[in-house]
């Protein structure tokens, strides 16, 4: 549906985007995830029409998007700051985009009422933005964008301005709305948990380029680049060379992993903390000493210092754990739980 091909953008000496290609499907909830300054917001602004790329093409359902001015694109953006018009009421804010389409007064009113009901703000229609809470403002911003029935809705860090509790609520709300209206959503976020819980597919950005595009589970279980392995979720990363059984570490010996790489390729092995078992002292792959135990309620984190590795290995266990700081433990994991990433 949306096809981005070879898009690059430089600001002076800084390359914000270099040769980015993506394809986003109809009705998809797509996330652009990456640390700040990785170029994801620049891409969003290019799609909205506030920036133009130095190179590359963008088409929406086969039509060239870059040739159209921002106000003619069938694309709407929900701003990070919401950008509600302070001198207009909620209803006027929402109606603004429809009035620009020169729709009849009755139709505008009907659609505004409908969308305000959809976001649960029908009683707030006469209020001004400064009289609303953060969550309510966010709903107005969302209503104002979806009332136009765009083919593509862009959301810039939609939840970052909300406190934790409201954020969880709005997260569900966003998903429900996206299902209901069936508009393709592209959300920009630096929060990987947000991206994972919202999106159907995620593109991970780093330094102006796309590292990996995948569904959340795939991304989590099979990171394909060192950056993704380190950025998405917690990971224990070991350095070494690929071998038939996994990874041959310089000081740690053979570590089990799902190797598809030719022997001897320099590689990283990533193992999720929750996939590591705490075994008896003589079994397991690695031996070490527990240096810290943190209890989080549902899970516990155990840090194990392994000789030959500077950083402790992080192990996550269900509920409270029996091990204590200072005790000797052995660590083990199944071959399928070690992911090899070429370096």
């Amino acid at each position: 549906m949306l096809k981005i091909t070879g898009v690059s953008r430089r600001f002076g000496d800084v390359t914000a985007l270099s040769d980015v290609s993506l394809e986003i499907r109809q009705g998809e909830f797509f996330a652009l995830l990456g640390p700040s300054g990785c170029g994801k917001t620049t891409l969003l602004r290019i799609l909205a029409g506030f920036e133009s790329p130095d190179e590359g093409t963008v088409t929406l359902d086969g039509d060239d998007l870059l040739g159209q001015a921002a106000h003619r694109r069938p694309v709407n953006l929900m701003f990070q700051s919401y950008a509600l018009f302070p001198h207009m009421t909620v209803a006027k804010n929402v109606a603004y985009g429809l009035e620009r389409e020169r729709l009849g007064r009755a139709e505008v009113r009907g659609r505004v009422d409908e969308v305000l009901q959809k976001v649960g703000l029908e009683t707030m229609a006469g209020r001004r933005p400064h009289q609303l809470s953060g969550g309510q403002r966010q709903r107005v911003a969302l209503a104002r964008a979806i009332v136009k029935r765009p083919r593509l809705l862009l959301l810039d860090e939609p939840l970052s301005a909300l406190d934790k509790k409201v954020r969880a609520e709005m997260q569900l709300e966003l998903k429900r709305l996206q299902n209901e209206v069936g508009i393709t959503f592209v959300v920009v976020t630096h929060d990987q948990e947000e991206a994972m819980s919202l999106a159907d597919r995620i593109a991970v950005f780093n330094a102006g380029g796309v590292e990996q595009v995948d569904a959340p589970v795939e991304l989590y279980e099979h990171p394909r680049t060192p950056f993704v392995a380190g950025f998405v979720g917690a990971n224990n990363i070991f350095e070494g060379r690929a071998c038939s059984a996994g990874l041959a570490g310089e000081e740690l010996g053979i570590l089990p992993g799902d190797s598809g790489l030719p022997d001897g390729t320099p590689a990283l092995l990533a193992v999720r903390p929750e996939r590591i078992r705490l075994d008896g002292e003589d079994k397991g792959v690695l031996g070490g000493e527990v240096v810290d135990v943190s209890f989080y309620g549902g899970i516990s984190h155990v840090s194990v210092q392994v000789s030959g590795r500077r950083q402790p290995v992080l192990v996550a266990t269900q509920g409270a754990t029996q091990v204590q700081t200072g005790s000797k433990v052995a660590l083990g994991w199944a071959e399928g739980d070690g992911v090899l990433i070429p370096q």
Partner: peptide
Amino acid sequence: SLEEASRDLGA
């Protein structure tokens, strides 16, 4: 961003 929002909404 207010001006951008206005443009984005078709103004």
